[in-house]
């Protein structure tokens, strides 16, 4: 009996047809493709995208972000001592986004929440100089870019103007 059923299984290929049933099942299921340039996914709130710096908030003398960065891609120039008493904002602030790992450790270490990730992730450029951010280009544009995740919860994160106001959009 055993032998007969084995023989029948051998010549009728039941397991192959089962496999074909599986692929047929997926044939009729919803497709998972995202039509990327036309249809963009909503990124989760915590996405670590391109870095932005709120120059007005930065106290520049701490330079934690510069020290902690494993790739050494941040360079902060604090103002001279006399000036620093009144205006702590950096004279110049460079981020080499080309080398950035988007690891988030600079954001982690900043005590004022000046440096933060945005949700800009399309970092493909023709000239890599476009990825070198300085004092002019680093501050986010409140209308275009959204203020994003900050590690320090006690620092108020401005999401008022953001179209993605509801937190944790992805879930």
């Amino acid at each position: 009996m055993e032998a007969i059923s084995k023989f029948i299984r051998m010549i009728t290929f039941p397991e192959l047809f089962k496999g074909m049933a599986v692929t047929a099942k997926y044939f009729f299921q919803r497709k998972v493709t995202e039509q990327y340039p036309d249809q963009k996914t909503i990124l989760p709130y915590r996405t670590k995208g391109k870095l932005h710096v709120d120059i007005d908030k930065c106290i520049s003398l701490c330079r934690f972000c510069e020290k902690v960065c494993p790739e050494g891609c941040i360079k902060v120039f604090p103002p001279p001592k006399e000036l620093a008493k009144t205006d702590k904002r950096p004279v110049e602030f460079y981020i080499n986004q080309e080398h950035c790992l988007h690891c988030g450790m600079c954001v982690d270490s900043c005590s004022t929440g000046a440096i933060h990730h945005s949700d800009e992730y399309e970092l493909v450029v023709i000239d890599f100089k476009e990825l070198l951010g300085d004092k002019e280009t680093l501050p986010y544009d409140m209308i275009k870019k959204h203020y994003r995740w900050n590690y320090l919860e006690n620092v108020p994160v401005k999401i008022k103007d953001s179209p993605l106001k509801e937190e944790e959009k992805s879930q």
Partner: peptide
């Protein structure tokens, strides 16, 4: 959604974890 990165998330700091699950 949790780490902020998909492939190379720099998941844990030394000594614990960064944030609770969202």
């Amino acid at each position: 959604a949790h780490f902020g990165q998909r492939l190379l998330p720099n998941a844990y700091p030394i000594g614990g974890c960064r944030l609770d699950f969202p």
